[in-house]
């Protein structure tokens, strides 16, 4: 098991290098010269050259790519063109904000999603079920940015209960971003929970558990939910990535100074070092989160653990282990 985790951690390194190459290449061919953008169109060639050297954006594609990758291996994400400070420092400050909001959102999403998913599955084809599935369908159909704006409209403009923007002064500022992000996830989690619970409740081992004389709720919680969790955990893992991306929109709406807003501002200002840093950070965090999810799997589903352990012995490719999820 430990060997598997180490293998997965090592795999993150080539992923990050690959992501860097992809993002670097895309941005390299983007229109707009950061030097002229920073110095104005009338800047002298010498000044432009000096700026490029300072920012490390002089030379050919390969020279710059090499420099970027070397920097990455040393844990240096380059210098922000705008603020002339190391991107990494900027990111760490902002990541705390994004992480805080995302963490609360996913907790909200998991609690709401699993709770209503179970209720909906157990009360299949009742009014409660229709109500919950209907709401979930609305939840996944609502664009996150619009949902955020509607929250502002209701709770700030009409009711005046919550501040419409900002972060860090009061817990009240967290409420709407967390709801905007979390409700979306909860809708997806709810739908998966429902279908997974319906599937599991039909299985023979549920009948066995009932035949043992176990009470209804213990059958649901002890036998059904643990089995139903397997696909739910997959979806939660996927939602973590969606959540990080969703924070871009949410932070833009609620003017929260997190990674998402930093990314949008950097893209608009053609601050490519910062953009690259943001994408890398998000890719890195998603990879770690995916690994955590996969480890959680093995605790829920013992069959996965056997698979990983036998993969160790027979050198099965990792892909084989994953594709059977």
């Amino acid at each position: 098991m430990l060997k598997y985790i180490i293998k997965r951690l090592l795999w993150i390194i080539p992923v990050l290098i690959g992501v860097t190459v992809i993002v670097f290449t895309i941005l390299y061919f983007s229109p707009g010269d950061p030097a002229y953008l920073a110095l104005g169109d009338n800047a002298t060639p010498e000044a432009v050259e000096a700026y490029r050297v300072e920012m490390g954006i002089n030379g050919t594609y390969w020279e710059r790519l090499g420099r970027t990758l070397l920097g990455l291996l040393k844990g240096d994400l380059g210098i922000s063109y705008r603020s002339r400070t190391p991107v990494l420092d900027e990111l760490i400050v902002r990541f705390k904000v994004t992480f805080n909001i995302s963490a609360w959102s996913i907790i909200l999403g998991i609690l709401l999603g699993i709770f209503f998913g179970i209720i909906s599955a157990l009360k299949q084809n009742t009014v409660w079920d229709s109500l919950a599935t209907g709401c979930a369908l609305f939840g996944i159909s609502m664009p996150m940015f619009w949902q955020g704006l509607m929250l502002i409209l209701i709770f700030s403009v009409w009711l005046g209960w919550l501040p419409a923007s900002g972060y860090g002064d009061s817990w009240k500022q967290m409420v709407m971003p967390v709801i905007a992000l979390g409700v979306n996830s909860s809708a997806t989690i709810m739908r998966t929970t429902r279908s997974s619970m319906l599937e599991v409740m039909r299985q023979d081992y549920i009948r066995t558990a009932k035949a043992k004389g176990q009470s209804y709720w213990m059958v649901v919680l002890r036998h059904a939910l643990r089995n139903a969790m397997i696909p739910i955990v997959t979806v939660i893992g996927l939602q973590l990535g969606v959540l990080l991306a969703g924070s871009i929109v949410t932070e833009a709406i609620f003017s929260v100074a997190g990674v998402g807003k930093y990314l949008v501002d950097s893209l608009n200002a053609r601050d490519y070092a910062a953009v690259q840093g943001c994408v890398l950070l998000i890719a890195f965090v998603s990879a770690i989160l995916n690994l955590i999810v996969d480890v959680i799997y093995t605790y829920i589903d013992p069959r996965m653990k056997t698979m990983y352990e036998s993969a160790k012995v027979f050198h099965l490719p990792k892909k084989g282990a994953k594709s059977s999820v």
């Binding site: 992501v19 941005l27 991306a245 990314l263 949008v264 893209l267 943001c278 998000i282 890719a283």
Partner: peptide, 24 residues
């Protein structure tokens, strides 16, 4: 599939933002 894994490592929205920036 490894290449696809690399692209999957970047959230879809981010990738789209970068591509649209590059293309205009």
């Amino acid at each position: 599939m490894r290449c696809m894994d690399l692209f999957m490592a970047i959230p879809q929205m981010l990738l789209a933002m970068c591509i649209v920036t590059a293309l205009g």
